[in-house]
Structure formats: structure tokens, C-alpha cells
Design a binder for these strands. Structure first.
Lengths: 192, 192
DNA sequence: CCCGAACCTTAGCACTGCTAGACAATCGAG
DNA sequence: CTCGATTGTCTAGCAGTGCTAAGGTTCGGG
């Protein structure tokens, strides 16, 4: 009985190892470098072992995404804990969001650009994703303005941040100038 | 001499055929279905012929992106030609943008999500891309507000639209509700 | 001590983007 | 009109991808 326990623990441990290794590989060399062969080699098991934990590469991406969502939510909450005024909290939130996207591009992609097989905006949406959205909403609800549903406002604000994050990183927007862009966004969208 | 002329024309014609076929395939079955083998079969030539026109698949994506940029710019200009007030023009612009993204997801991806090997926000940026940005700027410059550079304003507005377009299509935002989102965006960002 | 089951690996499939080398058709010069 | 050279195209193949069927090997439970 306790043997089965131990095995279960070891399996869970190995699963964490897979996800952590995938993330590390992706952060250092990009998702293209995350092949099942390389990943298997890094964890020192053969390829089929990966498929005993995940249905396929897509699910591994999904696992990294959940990991990142929890981490991002925590960072967003930490950033908005300090400032006193709603305006300052929103600005801090925006900067923290863009900062995370810039510092962890691979994880950001797993969450919002790649297909990790996760449900979004749905009752089946995994908790970490719901929670990350909640972290945005907690701060943004205070500046939605009269007659504007907080959820709707959060969606629009989030979309704007997402657009800035992805277009900037892909080189579609000139780098630098992030600060004035965020300032404009916050000044115009937020209603105190 | 005229023989070489004819050949040159036929080559150019075949190049257009390649791009058109790639686009059609992508629009109907997604970019994953656009493989060099399938593409070669569709144009009734062997694979290496593709490589005598383009350096690789990436450049083919880039060609589709340029095609789409010209088309999109035209649609944006057509949409903003009608309305009389700046407010209405901006709203029409936003809807036309999101409409194009929704109607031509594959082309939109070629322009803004995939790597087509194109330069952006640079002097080397191909004309169609510059022109598409210009189409946005022409309408948005009138509502940037005092002291805000039109270029900066356009970047932010564009990023918001891009975020809405991609998050909606990827299922990250609940479908429907597009109208109130656009209304909120226009009402808050634009200054008359 | 031995059996059965859980576990892991080897080997392979069908596919990808891309390319070297062989082949045929066409052109220009004599 | 003929012959060599140049173009153009295709066949065949490489290295790599995600994924899986089949076969051992190992190890706990009786």
C-alpha cells in the first residue's frame, strides 16, 4: 500500500519535472526548441513517458500556461497592493502586466498565443486562469466608470494590454515608448 | 528578347498563383494545412519550384501578409469615407478592422501573428504595411487629443483593436459583446 | 521463490521544410 | 541545320517532427 503511495508521489514529482523542464527549455530557446525528443532527453526518460502524463505536446503547453497564470496573478496582486489611489493602482497593474509578458515571453505565449487545449471564458476554465482574470478585475472594477459593467471594462483593458504586449514583442511596434503608451491608456480608459 | 519577356511574365504569373493558392488553402483549412507538398500539388508543380520563387515557407507567408495589408487598408479607407463626424469615422474604422480580422483570420495571422520575415516599424518596412498603418492614422489623428502625438495614439488604439481581435478569435474572450466593447473603446480613447 | 502486472524502451510510422543531383527542353552560335 | 550551353524542372532523399505499437525488464505481493 505504501509502495503505491510512494509511486504516486514519484509520478507527481516527475510530472512537475516535465512541466518545469518544458518551461525552462521554452524560456531559454523558444517553444520551437521544445520537442518531445529533447524534452525526454532532458528529463532522462524516453519519449513515451511524456505521453503517460500528458495526451500530447499541447497539454504540456497547457500545463506551463497554468503555471504561469498562477505566477502572473500573484505578481499582479503584489504590484497593486502598494499604491493608494485607484489611478496609481491601475498604472501599476498595467506595468506589472507588460513587465511579466516581457520577462517571460514563452510563458506568456503558452497562456495567450499558443494552443494549450485550455478552455477560456467558460465554466470549464481552469481555476488559475479564472484567478488571473480576477486579479485584473479586482483593481479595474474601481475605475470602470458609471454604467459600465466591470467585466466588460476588464476585457477591454486587458485586450489593450495584450495588444501592446504582443505587438511590441513581435517587433510590430517600435520598442521603448512603453511608458507614454501606458500613461495614455490609463488616463483615457480609467474613470475615477 | 520577347521570349525572355514572356517567360518573365509567366514566372510572375506563377508567383501570384502560389501566393493566391497559399492564401486560399490557409483561409479554408488553416495555416497548418499549408505544407510545401500540398501547395506544390495545388499549383501543379513540384516542391522545388516554390523555392525558386521564395526562400522558404516563411516568405510565402510574408507575401500573403502583404496581399492582405493592401486589401485591409483599402477596406479601412472605404469604411471611413462615409461617416461625417470624427466619432462616427473612428467607430466605423474599429468595426471595419475587427470585421476584417474575423472574416480573414488566416490572412490576419499572416500579417500579425505568424513570422513572415517582414520588417515592421522600420524604414525597411514594406510599403503595404506602412500604408495600412497610415490608413489607421489618417482617421485617428483627428481624435488623438491635445498634446498627444498622433503616432503614439494610433499605436495604442491599434494595439487595443489587435488585442480584441486576437483574444476574441482564440476564444479567450466570450464571443458576442463586440459592439459594447468597441463603443467603450471609442468613447474613452477618442477625444473630439 | 515464483508469478503477474506495472513500467519503460526500442523501433517505427507518417508527416514536415528543404535541397542535391539527374534529366530534359530550349536557346544562341557557327 | 546542328551542336554545346544554359534554363528549367523533377525525382529522390535528408534530418527532423509528434506520436504509438509491440516487446522486455523489473519488481512487489502472495
Amino acid at each position: 500500500m505504501s509502495v503505491q503511495e510512494r509511486r504516486r508521489r514519484e509520478r507527481a514529482e516527475r510530472e512537475r519535472l516535465i512541466v518545469a523542464t518544458a518551461r525552462e527549455l521554452a524560456e531559454h530557446q523558444g517553444w520551437d526548441a521544445v520537442t518531445t525528443r529533447r524534452l525526454a532527453e532532458r528529463i532522462e526518460y524516453s519519449q513515451p513517458v511524456l505521453y503517460s502524463h500528458f495526451r500530447g505536446k499541447r497539454e504540456i503547453i497547457g500545463a506551463v500556461a497554468l503555471d504561469g497564470a498562477a505566477e502572473m496573478a500573484a505578481e499582479l496582486r503584489a504590484a497593486t497592493a502598494g499604491p493608494d489611489t485607484p489611478r496609481a493602482r491601475v498604472a501599476a497593474l498595467a506595468h506589472a502586466y507588460l513587465d511579466y509578458a516581457a520577462r517571460h515571453p514563452a510563458v506568456y505565449d503558452a497562456m495567450f498565443e499558443l494552443d494549450g487545449g485550455l478552455a477560456f471564458a467558460d465554466e470549464d476554465t481552469p481555476q488559475p486562469l479564472k484567478d488571473a482574470f480576477a486579479a485584473l478585475l479586482e483593481t479595474l472594477r474601481d475605475v470602470a466608470g458609471e454604467g459600465v459593467p466591470p467585466g466588460l471594462f476588464t476585457e477591454v483593458f486587458w485586450a489593450a494590454l495584450h495588444g501592446l504586449a504582443t505587438l511590441t514583442r513581435a517587433g510590430r511596434l517600435p520598442p521603448g515608448d512603453t511608458d507614454p503608451r501606458v500613461e495614455l491608456l490609463v488616463d483615457r480608459l480609467a474613470r475615477m
